[in-house]
Amino acid sequence: MLGRSSKAAKVAEELSHYGGVRGRSLARDALQRFLSNKAAIFCVFFLAAIVLFVLFGPALAKWNNEEIDWAVLGDIAAQGMPSVQSGHYFGTDELGRDLYSRTIQATGTSLMVGLIGTAMALVVGTTWGVTAGYLGGRVDSIMMRIVDILYSVPITLVVILILVVAGRSFTTLFIALGSVSWLTMSRIVRAQTLALKNREFIEAARAGGVSELMIVVRHIIPNLLGVLIVYASLLVPDLIFAESFISFLGLGISEPYTSLGALISEGAGTMGYGTLWQLLVPLFFYVSITFTMFFIGDGLRDALDPKDR
């Protein structure tokens, strides 16, 4: 208690002693610009609502995602419609399972894929790109050659190959998506690092005796953040697309777990039989998520890179 208060007192003293005006950092400026972008802010709230729905929606569910409602199974088109009374708020699927619970589970999967895949891409892509760009020379050519080769194979097909080879499972899917999603990121990071490396403030740091590692940590990475945030936010919908695409083809994660792609695929298969909600519900969620993500990413780019408007 005592230690803390003396520390606090010291901080307070320092603050009052050097009571200069707080500067507006680039990050604060960017945040200000982002906050004034009404469409993007609306999308942030919309996306937050979807996330909250995924987190707390199950509390309202009357059925879980595996149970089959035998009462409606015979006549889905008439009995499995969305209704509050039956407890199937979004109706049921072809097998009489509750679409509400299944949609929540599927949306969760999609969001997880987007987030975890992007996190992997950030870690691997940044490390790869910064290393290649900063070291330059032969290391750079070899590392970027590898990226080029991986790039020349359609990535989603590679993921399918990996799933085929290693077997279909949740973990494999994450690893497969993560192992190819970093390619674009590494290219962007490398290009940025190359540009930064020749800036005078890096030279100034070097002339000031700062070690190469510290230059990367203190000067290169912080200056990459803006670009990283923008491309990460645009990568999320890309990954959600890839996962849904694979699931649509029936090559993604397996039952009883499902994903938006698989639900859309099922819905598309039955839309001729008067059960249109089976298509429209997952479709609405998919389009909402990717649309808001793209809009947010766009807003972030405008905010962080004001010249590119």
Partner: peptide, 25 residues
């Protein structure tokens, strides 16, 4: 711009079923 972003979030596996629904069914 808005339509562009909207179109971007309509991948083939969304457009396919929707098109068939409208133009075929």
């Amino acid at each position: 711009v808005s339509l562009g972003i909207f179109a971007q979030s309509l991948p083939n596996f969304i457009m396919g079923p929707v098109l068939i629904l409208i133009f075929t069914l």
